[in-house]
Design a protein around this nucleic acid. Structure first.
Lengths: 197, 197
DNA sequence: GTCTATAGGGCGATAGAC
DNA sequence: GTCTATCGCCCTATAGAC
């Protein structure tokens, strides 16, 4: 795996990008091959079926989301702010993988639905652990999911919509957190010293 | 239009339901015809092309969303609570049209994207008018959109997730509104006596 | 490993009987 | 108005040359 064939990665990149930008229906093997600069047969050599392409994307997703989860745990801002901030900022340009997988989930592909469900649960656990109030944790999670809702919408609709106000939004999150901690004793946070990378 | 052929409406219903439940790709003319209990040719008599089917759905959407907008304006709870509540509750069983159109938007069909964009802008204007604070209005809108994000996800993931906590969530919305009105003078609300239907 | 050529199946749309 | 039959296209996948 140290130096796998480049065509494979290029095809997977192309697949993710077409999915994200144009939707599941546009992500045909022809389109992937054209964008990756290889032939259809070339793509099908590395990915014996179209589903294999989707499965490979899901593997990438698991790697990336595991790393994101660690970042969220160790961010000195705390999980809530990290979640809301990255919900918007990784949506802007980075992290095309999440949104590509989201498209597969929206197309009712069960493995993608399960994967999204799992990572959301993990994120939600961290936020709940930090704020210690169920309803407020729900509200914070929904704000982040609302940002994903925007980022998952095709077209130019939401480009930059929250760029000017993400800090104000984070201030609202702070206020929600503060209210939660003042009305009930929160879970201990951070649970221990974050590991140094 | 007083008594249009039933097959037309049944086909449109079937199209919306398949779209909502199984995604854009599954909404073939064959599938629509089967669910509506007519033949493919029968469907294509009323809707000369597949796009005509989508356009008819969009017309329905415009009618329904106009009515929803009036409800949101006249709800004695105010637009914010109405928005958050209906974001979840109409997702449960009612309002398959919104989610059907959402699927078309997620498939990068521009007319659907534009329609969703417009209704969101109208909702956002009402919420901003009520709370009078930009960041808090954004947060409230995002909570509602987060609920739609859940409702737009296929499968059983989110079924009932917020049923037990929607009132707690509305309490958080109240708290956000309260903070906004205490820190800055809000817009006048309600603007005038709501029209009686 | 990557290509071209082609088989096989599904889908949108048309034609014409009833 | 609704049906059946069929055409033509696009997409997935396979076969085999290089």
């Amino acid at each position: 795996m140290a130096r796998p064939p480049h065509a494979r990665e290029k095809a997977l990149d192309a697949y993710a990008e077409i999915l994200r930008a144009d939707g599941e229906r546009a992500a045909t093997i022809d389109a992937v091959a054209a964008r990756a600069g290889v032939s259809k047969g070339g793509v099908l050599y590395h990915f014996p079926s179209k589903e294999a392409l989707a499965e490979a994307l899901l593997e990438r997703f698991h790697e990336v989301s595991e790393a994101e989860l660690i970042e969220m745990q160790t961010d000195p801002e705390g999980p809530s702010r990290n979640y809301v901030r990255t919900s918007w900022q990784t949506s802007e340009e980075e992290d095309p993988i999440y949104r590509a997988v989201l498209r597969l989930a929206q197309s009712s592909w069960q493995p993608a639905i399960t994967a999204i469900e799992q990572i959301h649960k993990a994120w939600g656990d961290l936020v709940r652990g930090e704020v210690g109030d169920e309803a407020i944790a729900d509200a914070i999670m929904l704000i982040g999911e609302g940002l994903y809702y925007h980022s998952a919408m095709p077209g130019t609709w939401t480009a930059g919509t929250f760029d000017h106000s993400i800090d104000d939004l984070l201030a609202v999150v702070d206020r929600l957190k503060k209210h939660a901690t003042s009305s009930s004793e929160p879970y201990p946070w951070p649970p221990s010293a974050p590991p140094t990378p």
